[in-house]
Design a protein around this nucleic acid. Structure first.
Lengths: 195, 195
DNA sequence: TCAAGTTCTTAACAATTGTAAATGCGCAGT
DNA sequence: ACTGCGCATTTACAATTGTTAAGAACTTGA
């Protein structure tokens, strides 16, 4: 079983690739293993790679004026990630992209991707589909942030993303939910008592 | 001055179109004028068109279990909008898409767009770029929701989107900010007193 | 013009979160 | 085994928001 299998399982759902295209792409994908808390993109850096997750969890976070880490998103296996703005716009990243657990990744160089997007229509289609799906999901995240109370958000997360609740430390989860670790702890004890 | 000029001003920034492609596209764009509070996509309906805003403001909103309208996004001139999930996935819309003010629009049929995305690479590129930019913006919205207090969010909105504060009724703004109209009113009086 | 319906504001009270600080738990490195 | 550090929990208090209700201000349509 090739290490590329999970990649094509996802990519194949989004666009059709010929055998030649697949080979051309596989030749440039870079297999990587990284430990927990490893910074893939640092603040002020320009992201030169995007990543596909084979195993493990990552996130990106901002640093606010109180030097707190504000988690913007948590990524799980089968997903692509990078510092979106930095990777596509060649801007300096305003966010840190970091592994949460040890990870196995496939890395894609920006230059390669740009080349492919010009020469392989299926790749542009794939990227469009990823962004489309991610955007739909982002809308549901916003909806949950503006319409649910933190406690309801936690319960909804328990159901829809049990993997996160299981693998992600609570101080990271709480910053992802927009509440303090203290408040998340209170919510947990409240929910535990009366289910 | 053609009614399509604002469209190409935006589209031209995102991808390169030949004269023939532009003509082909213009022939299918549909000019529309609609009054305020006009429903372009209703709950449970499948969106058959996407829209480019020439003039006016629109939004989409969910209906929660208390029958309240939860505004997910507000769109302004120069932007494309529809019920994203419904339009692309041919799903039944879980959100209402509605004008806030009277509007002037260019409508695009889904069938035409799908055809174009297969035959005109620049269109797939354009859609990808729109989703990319919208996704980057969505990330900043999420960041503001999880890291700022409602009052800070209102002040930041005053600076970054004064057009919204000016043209959008406050009960809609408040639902977009994730607070009650009552609370927004309090915030406004607090901000007004001590700037 | 008047009447009816929205929208916005203000008030009082309940509920929840934020803040700060102390405690406990668990894991890593010496 | 011991020490130190990061993480999670608990407590008490302050601050803010949600809720409900009432009234003012503004629109809309007959």
């Amino acid at each position: 079983m090739s290490v590329f299998a999970p990649f094509w399982e996802v990519a194949g759902q989004l666009a059709r690739f010929s055998k030649e295209e697949k080979e051309r792409i596989e030749n440039k994908l870079i297999y990587k293993e990284i430990p927990a808390k490893y910074r893939l993109v640092d603040l002020g850096e320009t992201a030169r790679q995007a990543y596909f997750i084979l195993k493990g969890f990552s996130r990106f976070y901002y640093i606010n004026d109180k030097a707190e880490e504000i988690t913007g998103f948590i990524f799980s296996p089968g997903q692509f990630f990078s510092s979106l703005e930095s990777f596509f716009n060649k801007d300096e990243s305003n966010q840190v992209v970091e592994s949460v657990t040890p990870m196995k990744l496939l890395a894609i160089n920006r230059q390669d991707l740009e080349e492919w997007m010009n020469e392989i229509p299926a790749i542009e289609r794939m990227v469009r589909m990823i962004l489309q799906q991610r955007m739909i999901y982002a809308q549901s995240v916003v909806a949950s942030l503006i319409s649910l109370k933190p406690e309801e958000r936690y319960i909804s997360m328990l159901e829809s993303r049990p993997d996160l609740v299981q693998h992600i430390p609570q101080h990271i989860l709480s910053s992802y939910m927009g509440i303090t670790p203290v408040s998340l702890s209170r919510i947990r004890s409240r929910v535990k008592d009366k289910p």
